[in-house]
Design a protein around this nucleic acid. Structure first.
Lengths: 182, 182
DNA sequence: GCTCACATGTAATAAGTTACATGATTTC
DNA sequence: GAAATCATGTAACTTATTACATGTGAGC
């Protein structure tokens, strides 16, 4: 249901192709808190077309492959609004990284160190991305959302910066039987 | 695959029933970055038993329903280690709340205000929870992970505290046709 | 000539959600 | 007497993932 909601959100601000919607999920401001791949977007669009929430027209351009440009209908707008008003599902945070941190003694300090590097690079990239979007952006709601993301990610990044050595130290303690059976 | 990994993680620190594993996903330190329900835990345990990753014994206690106590096998430990060493999937953050924030003008300031309240209460609860776990906790890796969570959530909460009025103001601006077609 | 970006989709599979079904004991 | 907690599981359904399948044009 979340891919559907996302497609309606994008289309509520303007027409788009499936390809463009996926790109928005991959690169834009949405990418930081939404997941959607071709395999979920195209079927979702097809289904919504059957339900009358969206329509499409074909655009044939010489050379380039033809595009199916989707538009939201009034029914679609109503459905989107309804979804917005429904109490939103709780935000979801799933972290294989934190699970790894919890079991850091099992993998040792070198591996942990490498993974912390990866995680920090990732956060830095995301933050840089959001700062860039903030600059080219004109919509105040987008700015607010981007700043929320920058704040939260910066806090995580900073925590890693200040406390990574602590975790690396913990990871270097040997795993005793007592701990394993704890 | 993530429910499986989580079950192995729990069992690697000691025997447990399906019920207890689900409780750990619901309440403990894990609950802040893992999702798992009965419907995914029980089938997962059954499958892992067939694969020889876990075994179980029945405990009949007078009165209470009988429990199936699962233990991890050496094969299971190996599988868990292997999963830990495999490059972890990127952390996943999905936020219906931020999508709502982005479209705040469509729902208006009253609704947004209510949702911000909900979100803040939620964050406060989680933070309080983690602080409490931090106190009763003895494992340094757990402490590190909990502090990570407290840091990130506190930053989000603080952002909401400082900037909620801004979003409420944005939400009160009428949606023009130009914006809708932007 | 190669890779990247554009562009659409399907099929098989995996995974998880939600509701259902059942029942005893403990606590208020 | 009611509600919460302990305790196990299934079945139907929804959803998403991954890989496959295909092809053009532009830039290097």
């Amino acid at each position: 249901m979340s891919t559907r909601k996302f497609c309606l959100a994008i289309l509520s601000s303007g027409d788009a192709t499936g390809y463009e919607i996926r790109k928005a999920a991959q690169e834009g401001q949405f990418s930081h808190f939404i997941e959607a791949s071709y395999g979920s977007i195209y079927p979702s669009l097809a289904k919504m077309e059957q339900e009358g929430l969206v329509t499409w027209r074909e655009e044939l351009s010489s050379g380039k492959p033809s595009r199916k440009i989707y538009s939201i209908t009034q029914l679609g707008r109503d459905a989107f609004l309804k979804e917005l008003f429904e109490t939103p599902v709780e935000d979801l945070f799933r972290s294989p990284f934190l699970l790894l941190a919890l079991y850091c003694r099992w993998v040792g300090p070198e591996f942990i160190s490498k993974e912390i590097d990866r995680r920090m690079e990732n956060l830095e990239l995301k933050i840089a991305d959001m700062k860039h979007e903030l600059e080219i952006n004109e919509d105040p709601a987008s700015a607010w959302t981007l700043e929320y993301g920058i704040t939260a990610y910066s806090a995580s990044l900073n925590y890693l910066k200040m406390n990574r050595s602590k975790l690396e130290r913990i990871a270097s303690e040997p795993v005793s039987h007592a701990q394993a059976a704890e």
